[in-house]
């Protein structure tokens, strides 16, 4: 009887251990799989030439990813530029000032933003942001713009990463001990001075990690961006031009990717780039955030 129970326990342990290790290995499997798939396009073309060329002619077998990479960078940069100050101020207010009542009001709002699917943001972008840019922003600078621009994608993405950034900032700020704040307040500092000179200073690394995490989230976002970015191949020269970020490229062309030689491989290469960037960014920022968490405990 006892033996049976122990055997059962050991078996369960083995099974669970296996499941855990398999899930870790999954990251590797993904990397290897994407690499193998993108190997054909890397044959005869150097990695550098692939990401620095802007010639995109799949029919002729020319794959230059520069326009897509630049498009991704533009959109991500703009999204962080919009989301960073808003989430920083919101997070400071929520950790340093807010009464529980205010928090009870703001958290559900952030919950909603976090829960809405990408495609809903796309709909919102098409119905609100794109027409707004087309009729109110662009006319100041040019004759005509459809509104499907870097700016539209940046705004939509910015709103999408807001809840993530706020919650990460709150987590990071909460790791600062109250005594430190009180030490500053007791010297006659205002709350803002305390936030600026003690809390922000103490959490620089954590804030950086949070931002990097938000960057990687923004880079991989697909459908919403696809719906508002314009999808014109070319290096955008300003925020009021259309662009074509990497995820949009993959999503838009999956249908025809089997019809042309190397096309599938090229798209998998694009996915591999995304995978690599997100992997590195996530590893870096998570390791920093773990350190902070451990110090707190």
């Amino acid at each position: 009887m006892l033996r049976g129970r122990i055997v059962k326990d050991k078996m369960a342990q083995g099974l669970m251990c296996l499941l855990t290790i398999l899930s870790i290995l999954f990251v590797l499997v993904m990397a290897v799989g994407l690499y193998l798939k993108s190997a054909p396009v890397l044959e005869g073309r150097s990695f550098v030439s692939l990401i620095t060329s802007s010639e995109w002619k799949p029919m002729k077998g020319e794959f230059g990813f520069l326009p897509f990479i630049v498009g991704s960078l533009w959109v991500t940069f703009l999204a962080i530029l919009i989301a960073f100050p808003i989430s920083l101020l919101t997070a400071i207010y929520l950790t340093e000032y807010a009464r529980p009542k205010v928090r009870k009001l703001v958290f559900p709002a952030l919950d909603i933003l976090a829960a809405l699917p990408s495609v809903i943001y796309g709909v919102w972008g098409m119905l609100v942001i794109v027409p707004w840019i087309s009729s109110h922003v662009a006319p100041h600078f040019m004759d005509f713009s459809s509104g499907y621009t870097v700016l539209a994608a940046g705004i939509v993405l910015g709103v999408m990463v807001l809840p993530l950034l706020v919650s990460l900032f709150i987590e990071v700020f909460s790791s600062v001990p109250i005594e430190l704040r009180e030490a500053s307040l007791a010297l006659g500092a205002t709350r803002w001075q305390t936030a600026k000179k003690v809390v922000l200073r103490k959490t620089l690394a954590g804030m950086l990690a949070a931002t990097v995490l938000a960057v990687s989230r923004a880079m991989g976002e697909t459908i919403a961006v696809l719906m508002v970015c314009g999808c014109v191949i070319g290096i955008p020269k300003g925020v009021l031009e259309p662009c074509y970020p990497i995820p949009a490229l993959i999503a838009n062309n999956y249908g025809e990717m089997l019809s042309m030689p190397l096309y599938e491989s090229a798209l998998m290469f694009a996915a591999l780039i995304l995978f690599a960037v997100v992997l590195v960014f996530n590893l870096l920022s998570r390791i920093i955030l773990y350190r902070i968490e451990r110090k707190e405990a």
């Binding site: 007791a186 010297l187 006659g188 003690v198």
Partner: peptide, 17 residues
């Protein structure tokens, strides 16, 4: 201003970062 005039030394030393 009140807090400037009244200094505080707490139980555990708390150097700022």
């Amino acid at each position: 201003e009140l807090r400037r005039r009244i200094g505080l030394v707490s139980q555990r030393p708390c150097p700022l970062p």
